[in-house]
Design a protein around this nucleic acid. Structure first.
Length: 555
DNA sequence: CTGGGGATGGGGCCC
DNA sequence: CGGGCCCCATCCCCA
């Protein structure tokens, strides 16, 4: 427990969201407390206004407007939604109450349309993904459905529903797959207990996002356009007065964008599509009806990386940054640096980590364990290398000397910093000015966050630490520049993950995508004033600097 | 600018 | 072969 938080503790109840939904679904089935009935072409669906408002932007605006108008929001009402096919409406309701969308692929279009009309963005996104995957590029191959009934499973980590709702991040994330990653550390990975109250989904189950990303209620500019959309009518109970008409086709366009939303557009193909398509493939993973396109593509990616590398082989080359990763099973770990996935969460403070060993070390902060004690003083440390650094203070050794100004440092990274900084004027004068067109790649500013040229650094290593160059220096050398943007990087990383471990990927929860988002935001943060820390972009920068220095040396 | 602590990512070893 | 554990190099941040 963090001492600074005044003893407040948060006790997670991961099952709460499941149970809540389950009970609500029970109520819907039995008609209990239902205060809204949706009808479609004669079919009637009792439901709850609050639930519909939570899941649908349309209903939220609808009821919000009522209440704002002094209606009070209570009372029974009927909404006629003939524009939404009964099956699709049923599926959307099922989704609202179970976080599971169950539809045959043939009904995908209707559901997509219904989701767009009602402003259920995550479902619309999911449907678009699926339709895109089936090769239906908006009319291009419109009627071309898979001959067999496609079984699509898209699950979500339902235990995160409440959490995500509470966060109201308005994130537009496409959760590819859910599954629960066995994780001893995190309370966020409990079993997603299927609601016992509602029957198991039919064989053609399509699981979709939880109602977590409705269009933002904060985007108050959004108004339901009460227009002449005869397609959809929402009729209040007689005597209620106002008749609510649709115009719901506008919801899709009105969906607000989030600041962190990746620049993925439905019509943006090519690179972004890699991820989209990959995600779809992940979606169907485990379905016997879908070929293993991921594995195929992943293998192709790996082959493209040079040689036929199977995951069983070590070292392996990262298809994203081309880096050679040594060690069995290390590539998935490395790929998380591209995806940003942080599957390991501290149960005490919620901080997430990409690796469990880092989490383990982190936990020492909570337990107070500082296993590395200095033999010369009472200092104790979390990390062995901290102790090592500390010991150098006692010894007074300053083995790292600047070759230019001969200033000595106890730590190598301090020497590097020194060389990058202004203190070593001799070196500084050698620094070339950034070439603007090169700098723009990384979106960085001149000067700040500069890294040493890998060549000069290596020269330094060769001069002062030949052992490190021989032993492991190459590991930190920049590898190839990754030409695409972050989306491309993620895309490839996801593909590789899929190829690497389809089984564990099947268990990748939405965290993976959340991780992407987190990474995305992190990139955006860092790309602002201080340059970027993206490995790929950093390599970019390093390579740029190599070019700079090489060019300069040639002069 | 420097010293120091902490975080992150890669590699080695072992199970 | 994958993953846990550990060490190392490097980077960031703060005083």
């Amino acid at each position: 427990m963090s001492p600074g938080e005044d003893g407040l503790i948060g006790i997670p109840f991961p099952e709460h969201s499941n149970e809540l939904l389950s009970h609500l679904n029970d109520q819907r089935r039995t008609g209990l407390l239902c205060d809204l009935t949706l009808t479609s072409r004669g079919a009637r669906y009792p439901t709850h206004r609050s639930v519909m408002a939570a899941v649908s932007l349309y209903f939220r605006r609808l009821f919000g407007a009522e209440e704002g108008g002094g209606e009070g929001g209570g009372g029974f009402s009927v909404c006629q939604l003939d524009c939404v096919a009964p099956d699709a409406l049923d599926a959307l309701l099922e989704f609202a109450y179970t976080a599971t969308l169950t539809i045959p692929s043939s009904g995908m279009r209707d559901v997509l349309r219904g989701a767009q009309l009602l402003g259920i963005q995550c479902v619309a996104d999911a449907c678009r993904d699926i339709l895109g995957e089936t090769g239906e590029a908006e009319g291009e191959t419109a009627g071309e459905q898979r001959p067999q009934q496609m079984t699509i499973e898209r699950t979500i980590e339902t235990t995160n529903v409440v959490e995500k709702i509470s966060r109201r991040k308005n994130e537009r994330k496409k959760v590819r797959k859910v599954g629960l990653r066995p994780n001893n550390f995190s309370p966020l990975y409990p079993l997603a207990a299927s609601p016992a109250s509602h029957p198991s989904p039919p064989s053609d189950s399509f699981r979709s996002l939880p109602p977590t990303q409705p269009p933002s209620p904060e985007s108050e500019e959004i108004h339901p356009k009460l227009g002449q959309n005869g397609d959809l009518r929402a009729i209040r109970e007689p005597g209620r007065g106002n008749t609510l008409n649709g115009g719901l086709l506008h919801w899709a366009q009105e969906r607000p964008l989030t600041a962190h939303q990746p620049p993925i557009q439905s019509d943006k193909l090519s690179e972004d599509d890699d991820m989209e398509a990959l995600g779809d493939d992940i979606v169907v993973m485990g379905s016997s009806s879908i070929p293993t396109s991921v594995a195929d593509r992943g293998a192709a990616t790996s082959v493209a990386g040079g040689g036929r590398k199977r995951k069983s082989q070590t070292p392996q080359q990262c298809p994203v940054c081309q880096k050679i990763i040594h060690g069995a099973g290390k590539l998935p770990r490395h790929m998380r640096t591209h995806t940003g996935e942080k599957p390991f969460q501290c149960s005490a403070c919620g901080v997430r980590f990409t690796r469990n060993d880092k989490l383990k070390i982190h936990m020492r902060k909570h337990t107070g364990e500082r296993p590395y004690t200095c033999s010369h003083c009472p200092a104790r440390f979390l990390h062995s290398y901290d102790l090592k650094n500390h010991l150098s203070l006692h010894s007074g050794a300053r083995p790292f000397e600047c070759p230019l100004c001969h200033k000595a440092f106890a730590r190598e990274d301090h020497l590097q910093r020194h060389r990058k900084g202004h203190s070593c004027l001799e070196l500084r004068t050698r620094r070339p000015k950034r070439v603007p067109e090169l700098a723009e790649d990384a979106g960085e500013k001149d000067g700040m966050g500069d890294h040493p040229s890998p060549l000069s650094l290596q020269a330094h290593h060769t001069m002062f630490h030949p052992h490190s160059v021989l032993e492991g220096g190459s590991a930190s050398r920049p590898s190839l520049i990754f030409p695409g943007g972050i989306d491309r990087e993620r895309s490839l990383a996801l593909q590789t993950l899929a190829q690497l471990n389809s089984q564990s990927l099947a268990n990748y929860p939405e965290l993976l995508l959340r991780g992407l988002e987190m990474r995305g935001s992190r990139e955006m943060e860092r790309e602002g004033p201080g340059g970027t820390r993206s490995p790929a972009l950093q390599r970019d920068r390093w390579a740029d600097e190599v070019e700079d220095e090489e060019a300069e040396e040639g002069e």
